[in-house]
């Protein structure tokens, strides 16, 4: 069940003898970083740039066009609610860290607890945000402000959803006992963990830009 704990394909030198196929040779590892971690880091660069395009639009609409009121009268952003939501998401970064520290030391209970908590906190964040959307009073068509507000927070919400999907898979496999102490046997938690930290940090930037700045 060794390969079950690795989310993405890897060299299978060890299996070559067991199969009638002549398998590929084990690739030479020419860097200290493993493929999955490097892959998710590069993907995060892409994601940052996607957010970058929407941030670019944000500053064009707010600074270059420079409308008379931002947000337009009479709307206001619920900074308090969003701030509380920020606290929820930030704390989920600590719980995923707790889970990772747990499995690195071989503590599977800590990993399960951490993953489950992270998952619940992420879900709470999404629910609070949807609730906020319902009560804001303006829509995505309310001038350029409504457009870019819903686009940026919605884009982030979509990323929370992707992160939650990855975490769901990791949690299922954690409860099935598929992860272990060795680094290559818990990549399935490490990689979603890195992505979750990205989602979290990106929210702090979105929150600071949209709600506070």
């Amino acid at each position: 069940m060794e390969s079950a704990s690795v989310p993405l394909p890897h060299g299978a030198g060890g299996h070559a003898a067991e199969h009638e196929h002549h398998g590929p040779p084990e690739a030479n590892q020419s860097s200290r970083i493993d493929r999955q971690t490097l892959g998710i880091l590069l993907f995060i660069i892409s994601e940052v740039m996607l957010f970058g395009s929407f941030f670019a639009s944000y500053f064009f609409l707010r600074v270059v066009v420079n409308p008379a009121a931002w947000p337009p009268h009479p709307f206001e952003l619920p900074v308090g609610v969003a701030g509380m939501n920020t606290a929820i998401l930030v704390s989920s970064s600590f719980t995923i860290h707790y889970a990772l520290e747990g499995i690195r030391k071989g503590n599977k209970q800590a990993m399960k607890l951490g993953l489950a908590l992270t998952w619940l906190l992420g879900l709470t964040f999404l629910f609070v945000q949807i609730n906020e959307y319902v009560h804001l009073g303006f829509s995505i068509r309310t001038e350029s402000f409504g457009t870019i507000f819903y686009s940026l927070t919605g884009l982030h919400g979509a990323h929370v959803f992707i992160g939650l999907t990855l975490l769901t898979a990791a949690t299922i496999r954690a409860f099935r006992g598929h992860f272990d102490k060795e680094p290559e046997k818990h990549l399935g938690v490490e990689v979603p963990g890195i992505y979750w930290h990205f989602v979290d940090i990106m929210w702090i930037i979105v929150f600071a830009t949209v709600y506070i700045l």
């Binding site: 609409l61 270059v64 066009v65 001038e143 457009t147 870019i148 686009s151």
Partner: peptide
Amino acid sequence: HTNFFQFGAGGDVIS
């Protein structure tokens, strides 16, 4: 029908 590039509603065409 959002307003990214709708000049009349605060959008920025050049962006």
